[in-house]
């Protein structure tokens, strides 16, 4: 236990120092997640917004929350892993008594920590511009929201880790992730609250893990009505499905990696 804590502390602090070196890039990255705010600007002027059950204030809170959720659920493990595998850095990692999964997870958490000031600055700017100015839920909901954001992040990390295993079989696995990004973009609730979708599309979205990654945490965070237990159960169910799949693929992948003599 002691060793685990120490390992976590060292891993996180070294990764944090590393990420601070990349702070300019991370600031830019934070900027690259502006899509929910662009969509907010569109929806706030669109006549179609009148058909939604959300009031303008609720809508702007929703998109601001979706922005925050998106910021802290960004996952890039596939790109790092692909590069590590191609450049041969993976082999030394495999010789260490620590599953590389943890190394990448620590890097992501450190990156999120680096992101905090930039995200706060953007949120503050948007808030000062008058969007989502009122009607926020009490702090207790916020804490719950933070927890759910982390769960959403874990789910996304797990999903991408599963895709990442394709690196063992293909030199261009990252392209697969670009494909996966499309349904994520359109079905997660980043571009519109799910209730704006026609019923058929909405049912389709609900059958995928994507709404759990944005719609559920954003709705919770913005004080909307949510089925808390149902949402958490969905998150847990998807993770319970993906984790064994990941472990299975990892083992098969390693066998292949070893066979290739890399």
């Amino acid at each position: 236990m002691n060793r685990t804590l120490r390992l976590a502390r060292v891993l996180l602090s070294v990764q944090y120092a590393y990420m601070l070196e990349y702070r300019a890039e991370i600031a830019l990255w934070a900027l690259s997640g502006l899509l929910p705010l662009i969509m907010l600007a569109l929806w706030s002027g669109a006549a179609a917004a009148a058909d939604l059950s959300l009031s303008p204030a609720e809508l702007s809170r929703y998109f601001l929350a979706a922005f925050v959720v998106r910021q802290f659920t960004v996952v890039w493990v596939i790109h790092v892993f692909e590069e590590d595998a191609l450049q041969g850095r993976l082999s030394p990692y495999l010789l260490q008594p620590l599953h590389p999964f943890w190394r990448y997870l620590a890097a992501h958490i450190a990156e999120q920590a680096t992101r905090v000031p930039f995200v706060l600055a953007i949120v503050l700017a948007v808030w000062l511009l008058g969007a989502g100015a009122s009607g926020w839920p009490p702090p207790s909901t916020w804490l719950l929201g933070l927890l759910v954001i982390h769960l959403a992040f874990l789910l996304r990390f797990l999903l991408q880790s599963v895709i990442t295993m394709a690196c063992f079989w293909s030199e261009r696995a990252a392209a697969l992730d670009r494909l996966l990004l499309i349904p994520y973009l359109f079905l997660s609730g980043l571009v519109a609250p799910l209730e704006a979708f026609p019923p058929g599309l909405r049912r389709l979205a609900a059958a995928t893990p994507f709404p759990s990654m944005v719609d559920f945490p954003a709705r919770l965070l913005s004080g909307g009505e949510v089925d808390l237990l149902g949402g958490l159960a969905t998150l847990a169910a998807w993770m319970a499905l993906l984790l064994p799949l990941y472990l299975l693929l990892w083992r098969a992948g390693l066998r292949r990696y070893a066979a290739m003599g890399a």
């Binding site: 070196e21 990349y22 300019a24 890039e25 830019l28 990255w29 900027l31 690259s32």
Partner: peptide, 8 residues
Amino acid sequence: KVWNATEV
């Protein structure tokens, strides 16, 4: 290190 600036 701005390798993703263009992505922004």
